[in-house]
Amino acid sequence: MNEVLPLDKARDTALFGSKAVGLGDAARAGLPVPPGLALSGEIVEAVAGGDESAIESVVQSAMPLPRPLAVRSSAVDEDGAEASFAGQHLTLLNVPSTDELPSAVRDIWWSANSDSAITYRQRVGLFTRPSVGVVVQALLDPDVAGVMFTQNPMNGADERVIEGSWGLGEAVVAGIVIPDHFRVDRSGEPLERKAGLKRVAIRAVASGGTVEEEVPDEMVERLCLDDGQLQELNQLALRCEQVYGPARDIEWAFAGGTLYLLQCRAITRTGR
């Protein structure tokens, strides 16, 4: 179906992909998700093909969203596709305006049809036509961001494991910093605080895209989260477990003093 919907209306993974529907579940449950849209695989294909009515529909729907935009893929074609294609499909952070949105959507469509994605599909016996939905959200300008496991992924212990760094969470996800490492028990009590080496922060730039910014010396080894923020993260972990079930892998960000949920998926493996 040729559809663009607000994230909280996205319910069908066969149309919108698991990332979009996962964020839709979060929005419906009142979790703090940045505002956004889900684009079906069909409308992504139409936009990539230059269909003017599809482009108009996407651009008009995105007009009310705060800029800049984060544009992410949401694979729709196979079970577990998000995990399978992590790293294959494109994410475009900091698309400055809706004018650039159609080309961002087209780039994501092509990322699902790129040679590396095709090679991967051939290797795992999935040589089928790719279908990719897209999530368009307001891009946050976080002070600090990172990942959180609602149970310890190394030993299965019933505790939160949190890694964070300055700026956008991609610095943690892409492994370009040694993030701060925290363990927190179910009451929110910190069990461990270990400062990392956070020499760079990824920030959005006004003209679009992102840049690696040098972190001032005094912040490189300073803990990026205080106990109050750890408590907030623990509360977010509890709410995510209520909505999605146990053992979640969460991407989060603090921007302007508010905690946001960026993604919540199942932990794919624990040491237990």
């Binding site: 049809n113 040679d115 095709i118």
Partner: peptide, 9 residues
């Protein structure tokens, strides 16, 4: 494109 990689376009 990269020599040796799969391709469908």
């Amino acid at each position: 494109v990269m020599e040796g990689s799969g391709g469908a376009a």
